[in-house]
Design a protein around this nucleic acid. Structure first.
Lengths: 350, 350
DNA sequence: CAATTGATGGCAACCGGTTGACAAAGCTCT
DNA sequence: AGAGCTTTGTCAACCGGTTGCCATCAATTG
């Protein structure tokens, strides 16, 4: 940020009305249509409560005045805001962009507004943000929450909450079912001659990380492969670079990482050290984020349908809000292996 | 989305209060502190208007009751919502990721809430979304808007509006100053022996696309290089693939593209056709989005400080809202060439 | 034709803060 | 002590919808 020129007088934003033309209200409509304001209110929000004739009268007047409800005036007595919140662990992380997009799209379709906040991977920040939001939204979606189950349940007691990427008892959740994708990945690696796999874990509070590790252990047992677990410092490209040492030291010939960012960082670091992927080490990521196919070789990964998670969570939440929902239940979405170039046959050490 | 199990009874969300414990109001505080509600209101929002003694009394009572203002009740008489909107052309496009992040971060810091919407690259959808938002926000940020100047000015007459990636007379804007970055890019290409450059343009309504093309023409003239302009169908990876034919046909040995996505798609397609980058063709993108360095070779690009644009716009807007701003003015942010592997010396054919 | 019923519109209170006008209280200063 | 000024708290109206209750009126029915 360098230079700030001042171009022309500001079109001083009118200090909100009173100077002649404030926004039209139901009272204005009532006057034009020659009815009582409450009738206008009913005509506009309770279909069928007024006669077809007055309905039309009022609608015409509303159209003429270019009327728009004042959401605040409506929210005050009813508590409904037509708004829901989405809290993500890290806006930096592209994983969440598909989720955000999915949620935003269904929000718009169903005439709701999406409010966004991030927790910066911190359980306290997350809880603070959630509390703040609760006042202004009808419901909340928590994507990969870091706070503990009890806090989530407490929030859910107040207003509908839907959780993505984690299972919390008594709270509706949207969870990718990792088993299918993982077993496909492990079978593929086994078929390519790998015998020892490593898992690079994500943040310790991450429910998903734990699930993926369990899934991998199970799949490896089934295929009679060795599985070792390595820890990462943070679930980012940088974190992936840092864990490269440990990966090489582990003796594993194939690696599954908690997410794609770790995989990409790991691959970069290994390649920089002269390791050929996939000839010497196979790498498999998780999620299939934007850019996973930009790498050379393109990243093999277990795809989570993130957009579907976002839209699924939004749908679940809105159904709940509109009284269509069954209550708590877990929506499982399928994962699948996306086979690209970063995994493959192990070449005999040359 | 495949399976939906129903796990346990719903923690039926309490239908908003009245059953004993609604949220505390200023009236409750007033009762506890033994003062009038209006005094509470003043204590909580007009610093200095009440004596230190009552101030403390009220604050203690508020803390004890765990009071939180009801934003709607506040918004109704004042019109202030502590909320601003951000409309992006396309949530799919990672260019906007950083803008969103920048805006969200400053919003949080300054105790504002960010509301997000997208226009799906359509001028009408954009205008509709903007109109809808206007009712619920204090101000609006338009990132790469597609609607025309007059519509933007009309919106700006109502409430503060800040525009990113475009200059609109009389409206505050945040614009990357492309000249520096472009001239660095062109000089670098000239120094590497290129004589004919191509520009792959973006959407016709894109102000930025026009500016970049102008900047490139100017820089080429200065360096005495040829510049040809090619059109793309859409500013995405796919659009980049599709324009590869034209690029080869153009005879240019170096290409600047409207954005990184086009560059990445173009590079993929060229490489698939056996063209070696950068030996036979140099490619330079725009923006330096997430993932631009994942490619092989990593993408040379003219970086726009997108996060800075987002936070700069938010700062501008909030200053305006809080009466600190000077009104319309353009905030220019610097661009710079990020030299990576996709551009370089032209190898003699053969 | 009178009685019952359902549909429709009006009245007024309410949601929870904000704010202008004003009165009471506190203070200074002569 | 009293005039004049400032500080502090109260009153009441207001923002713009929503909704329970009631009155009216027309339609239905015996």
């Amino acid at each position: 940020m360098t230079e700030a020129t001042n171009a022309g007088a500001a079109t001083a934003p009118t200090k909100r009305g009173r100077e002649g033309k404030s926004n039209p209200t139901i009272y204005d409509i009532a006057k034009v249509a020659g009815v009582n304001p409450s009738t206008v209110s009913r005509a506009l929000s309770k279909p069928g409560r007024v006669s077809a004739k007055t309905q039309k009268l009022i609608e015409d007047a509303a159209a003429e005045l270019n009327y728009q409800v004042n959401p605040f005036a409506r929210a005050l007595p009813t508590g409904r805001t037509s708004t829901f919140g989405l809290i993500v662990a890290d806006i930096t992380n592209p994983t969440f962009f598909d989720i955000i997009r999915g949620a935003e799209t269904t929000a718009t379709v169903r005439d709701y507004t999406l409010v966004l906040a991030e927790s910066a991977e911190s359980a306290v920040t997350e809880l603070t943000a959630a509390r703040r939001m609760m006042a202004t939204v009808d419901g909340l979606i928590l994507a990969s929450p870091r706070m503990d189950d009890d806090n989530i349940r407490t929030l859910a007691r107040d207003k509908p909450v839907v959780v993505i990427n984690r299972e919390v008892d008594g709270v509706p959740c949207v969870v990718p079912d990792v088993d299918k994708g993982i077993s496909e990945a492990v079978r593929s690696l086994a078929a390519n001659g790998h015998r020892k796999l490593a898992f690079v874990a994500g943040p310790p509070q991450s429910w998903m990380s734990a699930r993926r590790w369990e899934g991998m252990q199970a799949a490896c047992e089934w295929s009679r492969l060795d599985a070792v677990r390595l820890e990462s410092t943070k679930p980012t490209v940088d974190g992936g670079r840092q864990v490269a040492r440990d990966v090489r030291a582990s003796g594993a010939t194939a690696v599954l990482t908690y997410n794609d960012l770790l995989a990409i960082g790991l691959m970069q670091e290994l390649q920089a050290a002269g390791v050929v992927v996939p000839d010497q080490i196979s790498i498999v990521g998780f999620d299939d984020i934007f850019g996973a196919d930009f790498t050379t070789p393109p990243l093999t990964t277990v795809r989570s349908p993130l957009g579907e998670c976002g839209s699924g969570a939004a749908t679940l939440l809105l159904d709940l809000l509109q009284g269509l929902g069954e209550g708590a239940g877990t929506l499982r979405v399928e994962t699948e292996l996306v086979l690209r170039g970063s995994s493959g046959r192990l070449l005999p050490a040359g």
